[in-house]
Design a protein around this nucleic acid. Sequence first.
DNA 1: CCACCCAGATGTAACCTACAAGTATGCAGG
DNA 2: CCTGCATACTTGTAGGTTACATCTGGGTGG
Lengths: 145, 145
Amino acid sequence: MQAGKDASVETIHREMTAFARRARAAAARMHPRLSLVAYTLLAHMSERRDCRATDLAQAFLLDKSTVSRQIATLERLGLVERRPDPADHRVQVLLPTTAGAAVLAEATRAARRTVCGRLADWDDTDLARFAAYLTRYNDAARQQG
Amino acid sequence: MQAGKDASVETIHREMTAFARRARAAAARMHPRLSLVAYTLLAHMSERRDCRATDLAQAFLLDKSTVSRQIATLERLGLVERRPDPADHRVQVLLPTTAGAAVLAEATRAARRTVCGRLADWDDTDLARFAAYLTRYNDAARQQG
DNA sequence: CCACCCAGATGTAACCTACAAGTATGCAGG
DNA sequence: CCTGCATACTTGTAGGTTACATCTGGGTGG
C-alpha cells in the first residue's frame, strides 16, 4: 500500500476511533433516558422483525449474557416485550412495546437533530457519498467480524 | 431539509451509531492489552505534546475523575509518565513512557491491519474522500460539543 | 432413551463512568 | 499578606456495562 493510501487509512482509523470514544457520552447527552447500548438494541429490534437475543449479540459483538441483562432491564422498564417463539420454545422474539417505540422515536429525533447540525453545511453529493462510504465500511466490518 | 438529504443523514446516523456500538469489543479484539479508552488516551497524549488530563477529558467527553483514574492505572502499568509542569504546579504534563509508546505502536499496528483489511478494495480517491469526510464531521462535533 | 447442541439466564468479578466533595496551586483585590 | 475565587487534579461512592463460567431447559440425531 503506497503513501497516499496509507495516510488516508491512518486518518480513517484515527477519526473513527476518536468518534467511537466520544459516542457513549454524546449519546448520553442526546437522549439521557436511553444509554447507547439500550438505544442500539432497541433500534435493531425495531428495524428487524423477529429479532432474537442472539441476533443482537452477534450484531453488536456483545456477550449473550450482556444482551440478556440489557433486555431484562428494558423489559422491566416496559420498553420491550418478549414473545416466546411457538416454533422453538428456546427462542424469544423481541419487539419494542408502544412505549418503547415512543422512547426510541424520541431518542432518534434528538440524535438526528444533533447529527443534522453537524452536517448542516454539507451539500447533497457529499452527504450521499459519506453515507455510502459508512455503509460500505460497516458491511466490510460485519463480514470480517 | 429535503428528502435526499434526509435519507443520507439518517443513514449516516444509523451507521455511525452501529459502528460506535461495535467499537469497544472490536478494540478489545484488536489489542487485548489496551482497552478502547486507554488506547485513545495514550494515543492522544502521544500525538500532542504537553498533554494535560483536562485536555483528555475535554477531547473525549469524559469526567475528569475518570481520566484521573485511567491515568493512574496507566502509570501503575508503567505506560505513562507524569511530569509536574514547572510553570504551574497544579498541572501535570503527561507523556507515554518508552514501554507505553511500544504498546501503543503495537496496538496501532494491529488495529491498522484490521482497518486496512476493510478498506483493501477501495481506490485512492474514495479513501481520501472518506478520510476527509470523517475529519470534517468530527471537527464539527468537536466544535459543537 | 441418551448424548449432544443451542437459546437464554444467573453468579461472579472486573472495569468504566459520573457526581460530589476534598486538596492544592495560582491569581486578583484590598 | 490575606481573602476569595478559579483551576487542576484526586478520592469517596455508587451505579452501569461487560465477559467468562456455569446452569437450565428445549431441540435433534442416534
